[in-house]
């Protein structure tokens, strides 16, 4: 085995571990920020991790008419996210299989996760699961295209749709960062990330009223370790998306050399950058109200238009 292989393996491992812990921490951080800005003390930042730990130890409960899908769905959610995390340029530009870390791979891995979640919701055969699945898929159907097109906008300059390739190219051309195309794409990506991670104004992660739920309605029937898997999967997804936003637009600090020190630095920079993104998103959440379900398409269409504009601007500026 070559040194590259072992470096890649290490990078992959670090990325998975960092996101697995970092994702829930970011969720906790955002709750904290929200609580503080609302004048509450709020739960500690590590609360999501503790919740997960507590859930793992609980009993496995399945609804009476559920099939094997109910048990499988959280695993698929988690697995698709972990694979996406493993190969994306988060801490390093050269983890395992980074040559396959294409936009399309990442987008469709995320879509696979969403589909699995929706199927899990439908498997139980209740109104709420179906409702959540329907709403989540609708939002996903509008958000995923924007995500894809926004990243395509970035790939025009770098002439590849390979994410590490885009990151490396941006590192080599720092002047690209402030281009109008990039800023438009950033706007689009932020909207997508908010939608995909189920934050206000798209969805309220802390609602407990069935009829207003979107994402929570799908996971209503999960309990114990399966709920833990699904929640972890969602948290990691949030971590992945925040990290991608950070690295695609501000790639500095990411490890490109084959050294352990650069990996450590990469982790640190990643933590810093994602924290900033999380703070930004939390501020948006604090300052806005949840939209009505049927107003959402307008927001998401806006995101899509921004991303198309980004591509067009990129083409014009070429």
């Amino acid at each position: 085995m070559s040194a590259d292989f072992w470096y890649g393996a290490l990078a992959t491992l670090i990325q998975v571990v960092v996101v697995a812990f970092g994702g829930p921490l970011l969720v906790g951080l955002m709750s904290k920020v929200k609580a503080r800005s609302e004048g509450r003390v709020g739960a500690p930042v590590t609360q999501p991790l503790r919740d997960l730990w507590k859930l793992v130890a609980k009993e496995r409960l399945h609804a009476r008419h559920a099939s094997v899908v109910l048990g499988l769905a959280p695993t698929v959610i988690l697995a698709s996210t972990v694979v996406a995390v493993a190969i994306s340029p988060l801490v390093s530009t050269r983890p395992w299989l980074s040559s396959s870390a294409d936009i399309l791979v990442i987008v469709y891995l995320l879509l696979t996760g969403s589909a699995a979640a929706a199927l899990g919701g439908l498997d139980v055969g209740t109104a709420f699961g179906g409702m959540g699945a329907s709403r989540a898929m609708t939002i996903g159907a509008l958000a995923e295209p924007a995500l894809l097109v926004a990243v395509v906008a970035l790939s025009i300059q770098s002439k590849t749709s390979n994410l590490p390739g885009i990151v490396s190219a941006t590192l080599a051309h720092p002047d690209w960062v402030l281009g109008p195309s990039r800023l438009l794409a950033l706007g689009a990506l932020l909207i997508v990330v908010i939608a995909e991670t189920g934050r206000i104004p798209v969805d309220n992660p802390s609602t407990h009223l069935e009829l207003t739920m979107i994402h929570e309605a799908m996971t209503l029937e999960y309990a114990g370790p399966e709920l833990a898997l699904a929640t972890l999967g969602e948290a990691m997804r949030l971590g992945l998306l925040f990290s991608l936003v950070a690295n695609l637009f501000l790639p500095w600090g990411i490890s490109t050399q084959r050294s352990v020190m650069s990996l450590v630095a990469g982790v640190a920079f990643l933590a810093l950058k994602t924290t900033f993104v999380a703070l930004g998103v939390a501020l948006i959440e604090v300052r806005s109200a949840k939209l009505r379900l049927f107003r959402l398409p307008e927001l998401l269409a806006g995101g899509f238009v921004l991303s198309v504009l980004a591509v067009v601007t990129g083409l014009v500026a070429r």
């Binding site: 879509l111 589909a115 509008l142 958000a143 995923e144 295209p145 097109v149």
Partner: peptide, 20 residues
Amino acid sequence: VVALALTGGLTAVAFVKLVG
């Protein structure tokens, strides 16, 4: 590219519906 992206989402809805 735009069509490819948009249909990706629509197809997902249709087939999640079919299976689910």
